[in-house]
Design a protein around this nucleic acid. Sequence first.
DNA 1: TCGTATTTGTACGTATGTATT
DNA 2: AAATACATACGTACAAATACG
Lengths: 246, 246
Amino acid sequence: MKNVVEEKNVKIPLYVTVYETICQWLKEGKYKPGDKLPGENILAEQFQVSRSTLRQAMLLLQEDGLIGNHQGKGNIVLSNQDLKSNGLEKVGNPILDFCVQPIDRTVTAVGFQPATRKHQEVLKLGVSSIVAVIDITYFHQDMPVGFAMAYMPYEVLNEGNVDLEDTDSVYRFYTRLLSSGRLYSDTKLRIVHSRERLANILAIPEGDPLLIMEEELYTEYDKPVLSHKMFMGADLYEIRLKRKSK
Amino acid sequence: MKNVVEEKNVKIPLYVTVYETICQWLKEGKYKPGDKLPGENILAEQFQVSRSTLRQAMLLLQEDGLIGNHQGKGNIVLSNQDLKSNGLEKVGNPILDFCVQPIDRTVTAVGFQPATRKHQEVLKLGVSSIVAVIDITYFHQDMPVGFAMAYMPYEVLNEGNVDLEDTDSVYRFYTRLLSSGRLYSDTKLRIVHSRERLANILAIPEGDPLLIMEEELYTEYDKPVLSHKMFMGADLYEIRLKRKSK
DNA sequence: TCGTATTTGTACGTATGTATT
DNA sequence: AAATACATACGTACAAATACG
């Protein structure tokens, strides 16, 4: 039985360590935006790896938008300003990531219930499955600024060795899953007018615009591990992301 | 002098044709979600390519979310429902991509003006540069549902062999740039209450929520090519995207 | 303008490791 | 325990784009 969040066995591929080393170089400013990295043959020799292996590292750097590859020209360092910020294109918690006010407190409630038909469908569960329901309210200075409802199959929590009696333990599992899991999402964003219940929770006037993010998270694309819905008072959020072509 | 949008020369790498063939298989339903593809060695032989080349094709399929790779298990076909939709994580036009009402008409206005200080900064222009200003209103059945203001350096249009006198030509260049360019973005999303001017343009009551997307687009060289700002009546949009961890 | 050197892109082949069945 | 299948890593060769004298 394995913890979903558990770190992989310590075996790290060569090309990853090369990638991480070069990332470090860029962070340190050894090469600045616009600079050309040494040629692949040279780097390969420096790292004592084959050019193919080095190119796998280059691919990772390129996917991160850290370098651009140009045939005949070289590998050029791009903007390195984005090492800090996680955009919406990465799995994360938009309430924590994009609220203009810092979150300094959360209140969590955990319950268990039989999976509704929708849960069964979305999380691909059997009819007699149990799901954990996690409600989280996010505060800035005692002002609620966001609210989340998360649904996780009992099985996932169980495999994660979570103490189901301990609310805090469940909350930590959820946040770690969001930050360190290897997950993919299907995400939907909508803006609606707040109605009674959420207006109350978020302490805003009824009718004020509410940003809703609804998403399902999957491991390696296929197995659903989590479904959650987030509610954000629209004026308190500024969302950033990086988009790519293709 | 080259057109930025211009198609590449017809030379297509082997691994791309392999990728496209397998894509076709999936579209045709030759392999359905959940199925296992034949082993890489077998496929490599079928296609008469080396396994390395075949794996490059597999990588593309994986990046598209069409298959999942599982060591020891095989390459599994994933949901193929998403072949149509471009999520927000890809560069595109959110008004066209996410408005719940289909766009059936646009009205474009093009002008030229000296770069303001902000343009100079954002688009990295010299002091005496000229920028093209493109205003586009998007309609569904004579109802305005979105509005865009785009700024492009004169230089970019010029390199694209665009007839600056021809509004339609400029508009086409802009849309093609968004759909087929190889670009990266810095994007910001905000929700505000509409004020007089935009409420008028979009024919909505003042104070109604307005979704604003502001972004700069860069080529792989980190060269800014376009800055634009889009205004969307919030209730008419449902935004989808796929997020990834890391 | 032309040719040459440099640099990345594509393609092949082989061997071994590691996870799953 | 063995077979299967993908992951990693090495190496070679040539093609294509670019830079430079």
